[in-house]
Measured scan of single mutants.
Amino acid sequence: NNDALSPAIRRLLAEHNLDASAIKGTGVGGRLTREDVEKHLAKA
């Protein structure tokens, strides 16, 4: 659900052409954090 993404996370996802649903969020309520996105990028 993109409504739960902060603007910074949306921008980071867009810059790397990532789909938020492909990344498991570890923030409050399962929200994506910058660390989640960076860890996903490091794996790729």
Score class of each variant (00 low, 15 high):
7 P>M: 11
3 D>G: 11
41 L>I: 15
30 G>V: 01
32 L>K: 01
24 K>N: 09
37 V>M: 03
19 D>C: 06
11 R>L: 08
23 I>R: 00
24 K>V: 14
6 S>V: 05
30 G>Q: 05
31 R>G: 06
18 L>I: 15
15 E>P: 01
38 E>K: 09
2 N>C: 06
44 A>I: 15
22 A>P: 02
8 A>M: 11
3 D>V: 07
4 A>C: 07
11 R>Y: 07
39 K>H: 11
5 L>H: 06
26 T>Q: 03
24 K>F: 08
3 D>R: 10
5 L>V: 11
21 S>T: 10
36 D>E: 02
37 V>S: 00
9 I>G: 01
2 N>V: 14
21 S>P: 03
27 G>Y: 01
14 A>Y: 12
15 E>R: 15
31 R>F: 08
1 N>E: 14
12 L>D: 04
35 E>G: 10
22 A>N: 11
13 L>P: 00
10 R>A: 08
23 I>K: 00
41 L>N: 01
14 A>K: 13
19 D>V: 11
9 I>L: 14
12 L>I: 10
29 G>E: 07
17 N>V: 04
26 T>A: 03
8 A>E: 15
30 G>A: 05
42 A>G: 09
43 K>G: 11
44 A>T: 14
7 P>H: 11
23 I>N: 00
26 T>D: 02
16 H>P: 00
10 R>T: 07
11 R>W: 12
34 R>H: 09
9 I>Y: 05
18 L>H: 02
41 L>T: 03
5 L>R: 04
34 R>W: 15
8 A>F: 10
14 A>E: 15
30 G>I: 02
20 A>Q: 08
18 L>K: 01
10 R>L: 11
25 G>A: 09
8 A>Q: 10
4 A>L: 12
17 N>F: 07
22 A>T: 13
21 S>A: 12
28 V>A: 12
39 K>E: 11
38 E>G: 05
1 N>H: 12
28 V>N: 08
28 V>Q: 12
1 N>P: 12
29 G>R: 08
35 E>V: 09
10 R>I: 15
38 E>C: 08
31 R>A: 14
5 L>Y: 04
8 A>H: 11
12 L>K: 06
26 T>P: 02
19 D>N: 10
26 T>V: 03
39 K>L: 13
18 L>R: 00
1 N>L: 11
27 G>C: 01
3 D>Y: 02
4 A>I: 14
8 A>R: 13
42 A>F: 10
20 A>L: 08
14 A>V: 07
16 H>K: 03
18 L>T: 05
38 E>V: 14
14 A>N: 09
23 I>T: 01
16 H>Y: 11
17 N>T: 04
24 K>Q: 12
36 D>P: 00
34 R>L: 15
29 G>N: 13
36 D>Q: 01
31 R>T: 14
41 L>M: 07
13 L>I: 06
44 A>N: 13
34 R>E: 12
27 G>S: 03
10 R>N: 05
6 S>W: 08
24 K>R: 13
15 E>D: 09
1 N>Q: 14
20 A>F: 07
2 N>R: 08
20 A>M: 08
28 V>S: 09
8 A>S: 12
6 S>M: 06
37 V>W: 02
44 A>S: 13
44 A>W: 15
27 G>L: 03
5 L>K: 03
12 L>R: 06
9 I>N: 03
2 N>G: 12
7 P>A: 13
5 L>N: 05
13 L>V: 03
32 L>I: 15
24 K>T: 11
12 L>E: 06
33 T>I: 05
14 A>P: 00
24 K>S: 09
25 G>Y: 01
42 A>E: 13
25 G>I: 04
18 L>S: 02
29 G>D: 10
23 I>W: 04
38 E>F: 15
30 G>Y: 01
12 L>W: 06
32 L>A: 02
5 L>A: 06
37 V>A: 04
25 G>F: 01
42 A>P: 04
31 R>M: 14
19 D>Y: 05
18 L>N: 01
8 A>D: 15
28 V>G: 07
37 V>Q: 00
29 G>M: 10
1 N>K: 11
29 G>S: 08
22 A>E: 14
14 A>L: 09
28 V>H: 10
11 R>C: 05
26 T>M: 04
34 R>I: 15
3 D>C: 06
34 R>Y: 15
32 L>R: 02
36 D>A: 02
19 D>G: 04
23 I>P: 00
37 V>F: 03
8 A>N: 08
4 A>F: 15
36 D>N: 03
15 E>N: 09
42 A>H: 09
34 R>G: 05
